[in-house]
């Protein structure tokens, strides 16, 4: 397998706090790669570096052999990385399908003037975007809610909507930040199936999640972060057996 994402000795400080210290790993195309660790270990910071929300102080990040270390967020998105947010970032001023249509931004090209005049190109684009958006909603099982205002939806559905939105951008890598947080058992199971079907559709998945049974069951490889450092990187079985990981995060019961 070839490396889709290569992170080379990346560090990031916030004031005196070293949020990430010399992190090196690579993610292969097609795998489900999870990042676990206690709160404040640097998991979300890592996602923020990968999407250009923050920049790394040191080190480099290569995606699909493009150097994205200093690229801006929207440029990285155009190269094919999408993410969801721990604290949902749904466009609450739009309904479901509009949220998803917005994600097709990089797949179409009409500008503001042609939009204002509704040129033929825009009409064609709108037709295809409608189709793409419905496909993405269908994928997460929300086809019937296409026209529902997003500010009326329950939390679990908003999480799915955010994933549908990310998928509509046709990413090759998707970063999911705690997709199961706040979900009940049934919803968590549905989320698990959804992540698996995303992976089956050929999209590489990076997952930050605290639900250990979910992580252990679906991940191909897991990286354990603690105080900004990589404690362990390996298969779920290897991680579960590691004494350091047990001490820092999993606790005796899980080991």
């Amino acid at each position: 397998m070839s490396a889709l994402l290569e992170v080379n000795s990346v560090s990031r400080r916030f004031g005196g706090v070293e949020a990430l210290k010399d992190i090196t790993f690579s993610v292969h195309g097609g795998e489900i790669f999870s990042i676990i660790g206690p709160n404040g270990a640097g998991k979300t910071t890592l996602f923020n570096l990968l999407t250009g929300v923050f920049y790394a102080d040191e080190g480099s990040i290569l995606f699909n052999s493009h150097d994205i270390t200093r690229k801006r967020t929207f440029e990285i998105a155009r190269l094919g990385i999408q993410r969801t947010f721990q604290n949902l970032q749904i466009f609450l001023n739009m309904n479901c399908i509009e949220n998803v249509k917005t994600a097709c931004h990089t797949r179409i090209s009409s500008g503001m003037i042609s939009g204002c005049l509704r040129l033929k190109k825009v009409i064609q684009e709108e037709r295809i975007v409608e189709k793409w958006a419905m496909e993405a909603l269908d994928f997460v099982g929300m086809k019937d809610l296409a026209l529902a205002p997003s500010d009326t939806l329950p939390y679990g559905l908003l999480k799915r909507l955010e994933i549908a939105r990310a998928l509509a951008a046709k990413p090759s890598l998707i970063l999911l930040d705690e997709p199961a947080a706040g979900l009940n058992d049934t919803e968590t199971l549905e989320m698990r199936h959804l992540i698996e079907s995303i992976s089956r559709s050929g999209i590489t998945v990076m997952l930050v999640e605290h639900n250990m049974s979910l992580v252990m069951e679906i991940s191909h490889r897991i990286m354990v972060l603690n105080y900004g450092q990589c404690l362990k990187l390996g298969t779920p079985t290897e991680v579960q057996k590691d004494p350091e990981v047990i001490a820092a995060y999993l606790g005796e019961a899980a080991g």
């Binding site: 970032q89 509009e98 939009g115």
Partner: peptide, 24 residues
């Protein structure tokens, strides 16, 4: 109801999410 119109409303909704979707 066009690409840039949605981009603008997305900025209104969440600027960071709009950037992440590839909107300059």
């Amino acid at each position: 109801d066009s690409r840039m119109g949605r981009a603008l409303r997305a900025i209104h909704g969440s600027e960071i999410a709009a950037e992440v979707l590839g909107i300059d």
